[in-house]
């Protein structure tokens, strides 16, 4: 293929990847920003969302769009509920001790993976996109649904931003993030805020999974990649900065896409990985983070 169309395709793929990254990272950005705990099971909430999406779409009759819409509502509710439960039953009892939380969430990871393996099975199963629309360029075809994911990501991110900036609950979350002790002194029930944030983060991961699963597949081990990628995005962006998260997603997505034009796939992946690492080496606070100890 000629260079021009190749670059066009790579850029579009980069944008889609950026959208996928931003979608998976936004939940973690919230949890990590407010609670400062490393939740190793975050990717598993994503996986649960995708697997539940398969169950929901498979059991709702009628056109695929109907089942998909149902999944968009049901999956985040269930996953959010599970997360709230996990927070109350486990993380709270550990006082969110950073080290203990890592072990506990690794434990949760095993439990969720086993549950998915036993109840859903080891296969990768496709979930049909709500619409089947293809864009045919002179040089290649492209999935219309992938472009819809970019739009959905933008909408969802705007929604989260509005929630954080405009609503009372957003204010409470930001207050808790800023200073936990003072928030408590002002009568904020920090425990409830944490449970809410943890549930909301998991629900956002599930929404992302439902949106993304038609372009990937539901599989019980699919949580690993979103976990790592969303950590990378959140930290490159700068802790607690939604704007940074989005910008980091675009940076990583585009560089990954465009580097692949010039190098063979594995070499491209190595270079893109090192590039991202070097961004942090020379800007340890992330793109939009404040310098802090």
């Amino acid at each position: 293929m000629d260079f021009g169309p190749f670059l066009l395709l790579a850029t579009m793929e980069g944008l889609v990847m950026a959208a996928v990254l931003a979608l998976t990272a936004v939940g973690l950005s919230l949890v990590f920003g407010v609670m400062r705990v490393v939740n190793v099971a975050h990717g598993e909430f994503f996986m649960l969302g995708a697997v539940l999406a398969w169950f929901v779409t498979a059991s709702v009759p009628g056109p695929p769009a109907l089942g998909f819409a149902a999944a968009l509502v049901v999956c985040p509710l269930i996953v959010g509920g599970i997360a709230a439960l996990a927070d109350r039953a486990i993380l709270k009892r550990l006082d969110y001790d950073p080290e203990a939380t890592i072990v506990a969430t690794i434990g949760l990871l095993y439990i969720f993976q086993q549950a998915a393996l036993s109840l859903y099975g080891p296969d990768a199963r496709p979930v049909q996109a709500p619409f089947d629309w293809r864009l045919q360029f002179p040089w290649f075809g492209y999935s219309g649904y992938k472009l819809a994911v970019v739009a959905a990501a933008a909408l969802l991110l705007l929604g989260v931003r509005q929630l954080l900036v405009r609503s009372r609950i957003g204010l409470v979350m930001r207050a808790t993030q800023y200073d936990r002790e003072t928030a408590t002194a002002f009568g904020i029930d920090v425990d409830r805020v944490y449970a809410l944030v943890f549930a909301l983060g998991a629900a956002l991961a599930a929404v992302a999974a439902v949106l993304i699963v038609p372009i990937q597949q539901a599989h019980y081990l699919m949580g690993g990649d979103p976990l790592l990628l969303s950590f990378i995005v959140v930290i490159i962006g700068g802790l607690g900065s939604l704007r940074g998260t989005v910008l980091a997603a675009v940076l990583i997505g585009l560089s990954d896409g465009i580097v692949s034009v010039f190098f063979s796939p594995t070499l491209a992946k190595i270079l893109a990985t090192l590039l991202v690492a070097l961004v942090l080496v020379f800007r340890p606070q992330g793109l939009f983070g404040q310098r802090a100890a």
Binding site: E13, A124, P126, S260
Partner: peptide, 28 residues
């Protein structure tokens, strides 16, 4: 987990595309 951006590497003179993949992403 996504492969589209590598597909332009397939030369236009190609008569046969031979593919073999393993793991959960193969369907993608």
């Amino acid at each position: 987990t996504s492969f589209t951006r590598h597909l332009p590497r397939i030369p236009s003179e190609t008569e046969v595309l031979y593919h073999v993949m393993v793991g959960p992403a193969v369907l993608t």
